[in-house]
């Protein structure tokens, strides 16, 4: 395995990790499996695409001479996608959480509603923009650079660094802020939190916006390789869900470990000559099924135990 492959694996891990951590966090704090995560992904992808069309020429006009137009555009597109994702999180909150959160069978009901929301959004995007794939401008850098004699793609490194920074910030925020404390209190014991004056409705909104924002970031990062299309969210959703399961639903360290594992498996499977890209999903799912057969709690359970 050469360095390029390792960077590719980490790049995949970063994007899957963004999706899986969002799904995992939402499950453990709010108690819903968010099937509309894929729709968030596609929605944010389109937002980023239109932001790029609108801001691309502007950036060239204003900053073209200084050479800062590409990075500025990248930051702008990223912010737009993050905001769009957070906005979609608010929509999910209003439709699939607020209406039913204190009724019976909330997990199943919210699963169905978010699935419906996912399908409806995909159809709406199809209706509005057609099935053509759109390409985002490659604002995260093109080409390769040499490092220790191996050539590494710039955009992949940018993705890994950006994701690590952002996820790190989010996890530190969850650990040390007052809002994070409230979120963890609701996670562990909703009734106890209510008796502490913490409203689960008020904590659900920021967590939904946060997970939506993570999906938005994943969308713009993955769109450097994959085109933006109405159904673009399906594969990330499935992979995010299965990685969240692999990590043990609700465990953030487990989701990170799962994402790294799956990223490496995908990169390695693609590089093995007799398997190739076609067998990536097959190998991944076989691996996940095997892990869950041996350890139904997922990897997160393992980490929790060793921590004790």
């Amino acid at each position: 395995m050469d360095a390029g492959l390792i960077v590719y694996a980490l790049y995949l891990a970063a994007i899957y990790g963004l999706m899986a951590i969002g799904i995992s966090l939402l499950w453990s704090s709010v108690g819903m499996v968010n099937m509309a995560h894929g729709a968030t992904f596609a929605f944010a992808g389109y937002a980023a695409y239109f932001a790029a069309i609108w801001a691309g020429p502007l950036a060239k006009d204003w900053l073209g001479a200084t050479g800062w137009s590409q990075p500025a555009l990248a930051v702008f597109i990223g912010l737009v996608a993050i905001c769009a994702g957070a906005l979609f999180g608010v929509v999910i909150y209003l439709v699939a959480y607020l209406t039913i959160h204190d009724k019976q069978n909330f997990p199943v009901r919210s699963l169905i509603i978010t699935l419906a929301l996912n399908l409806a959004t995909v159809q709406m995007l199809l209706w509005a923009f057609g099935p053509q794939q759109k390409a985002l401008p490659r604002v995260f850098g093109v080409g390769r650079f040499d490092w220790l004699g191996m050539s590494i793609r710039v955009d992949q490194v940018v993705t890994i660094v950006a994701t690590t920074l952002l996820l790190g910030t989010v996890l530190v925020w969850l650990r040390h802020s007052r809002r994070g404390l409230e979120i963890r209190a609701v996670m562990q014991n909703a009734e106890g939190a209510a008796l502490c004056g913490i409203s689960s409705r008020k904590t659900a909104l920021p967590i939904m916006m946060l997970t939506g924002a993570l999906a938005g970031l994943a969308a713009v990062l993955l769109s450097q390789n994959v085109f933006v299309s109405p159904t673009a969210g399906v594969t990330p959703l499935i992979k995010g869900l299965t990685i969240a399961l692999l990590g043990g639903l609700g465990s953030v360290p487990g989701a990170v470990a799962g994402a790294v594992l799956i990223g490496f498996i995908e990169a390695a499977t693609g590089a093995i000559p007799f398997l190739g890209q076609r067998y990536v999903l097959f190998v991944q799912f076989t691996f996940i099924v095997c892990v869950l057969l041996i350890r139904p709690r997922g990897l997160g359970g393992l980490l929790d135990e060793t921590r004790e």
Binding site: A185, A193, G197
Partner: peptide, 19 residues
């Protein structure tokens, strides 16, 4: 005791200071 098993004593008490 509706209690948060994964929070420390300090964090737990902080949860009570809601105003």
């Amino acid at each position: 005791d509706a209690i948060f098993p994964g929070l420390t004593v300090k964090q737990h008490l902080d949860c009570g200071a809601y105003t």
